[in-house]
Design a protein around this nucleic acid. Sequence first.
DNA 1: GTAACTTGATAACAATAGTTCACAGTTTGT
DNA 2: ACAAACTGTGAACTATTGTTATCAAGTTAC
Lengths: 210, 210
Amino acid sequence: MVSILLAEDDNELRRNVVELLELEGYQVTAVASAEAAIAESEQQHFDIALLDLLMSGMTGVEAISNLRQHQPFIAIVIITAYATVDTAVDAMKKGADSVMTKPFKSQELVVTIKRSLAEKEILKNRADLDPDLVYSALANPYRRKALKILAAHQALKFMDLCRLVEIDDHTKFNFHLRQLKKAGLVMQNEKKIYILTNTGQFVLQHHNLS
Amino acid sequence: MVSILLAEDDNELRRNVVELLELEGYQVTAVASAEAAIAESEQQHFDIALLDLLMSGMTGVEAISNLRQHQPFIAIVIITAYATVDTAVDAMKKGADSVMTKPFKSQELVVTIKRSLAEKEILKNRADLDPDLVYSALANPYRRKALKILAAHQALKFMDLCRLVEIDDHTKFNFHLRQLKKAGLVMQNEKKIYILTNTGQFVLQHHNLS
DNA sequence: GTAACTTGATAACAATAGTTCACAGTTTGT
DNA sequence: ACAAACTGTGAACTATTGTTATCAAGTTAC
């Protein structure tokens, strides 16, 4: 079941949103301040947090880094009545995944929640891969280069990739390719041609290899 | 000298912005489409790109990933007359560093440019560190744990950190700590107490270690 | 068919990473 | 002052990573 953490200091709106989300089948924990939200996040796991921007005490945006400390994969949606482009940009810079304006229709909220969860879903994949192997695989310039080239060309045959990485000894390159396969970043398709796994694509997107 | 790539299909506005930015001492390359901007980015280095959202052909937001392909550290500002919170959020999700609304005052543009460059400045630091060493250092759960703990506690003495990482043999932990030092992620302050380097803080921020 | 290229497996080896042990100088508490 | 805990160094050793050489099955070109 998807668990939602809601921080909203308007009592009536909070009750309404809780009711709405519970009808949608979510499990909701509602609090009235950013501080309370942080405290809750230390107690139990949440998939997504809906934070009002302006509350007495800490703002929703200020709470983001605290929430992520205990729940690195939590999706965060900032909700605010006074949203401008600037406040939205600021919230995104500070780590929000989305920003909604108040007032909103029930369906807008549900759609935003579903989309934010979907976008985070890819991140969850990372949880089931072995970070030791991935970092170890990235700790070599040939392999980082191979990944980048593979990302650019989508699919490459062994020798083509080998040449592009500029390793003259193909057996040496074969070794590095195996390391990439072992780390789950690269695989061969049915025609034995090398492609990135979606893990590989994710890693490449988020690591900006140099 | 800071080099700016400007993509704007309104000829008059483009000329005005070029004039303004050159007066401010920037070196500006101006084009009239996202496609032309991508082509330029393959020719020379830019510190920052100012992209109009709506142009004939590709939008500014669609060009972002292409630009980053050749220039991973480029800062990107999306400029648009029809900015809503939703379009701004979308642009940020796709990798923009900031979003500005048209029309804007000269000073707003200059301030936004300076701030975006400053925020990217941290990234440049990464360029001068050895990715082999960093990834290698991260390829071990003890070391990732030590980094996380160090980030939470800011500063820790050797034995305190060792206990928190739950390694019983302090000399074994000492080895891993040396690896972290060698990678430039951790250092000792004047009182010999262990702290993260700013490289270490950057890595921790951007890797969300699991 | 055969010569050249492709795509691997395997073994032998060097270099690096990681562990453990022994020991020693420095702080800290009492 | 003395013991205990702290903060290391260095040597010995094992495991893993990375390189090189040899060999071989499959594919393609002619």
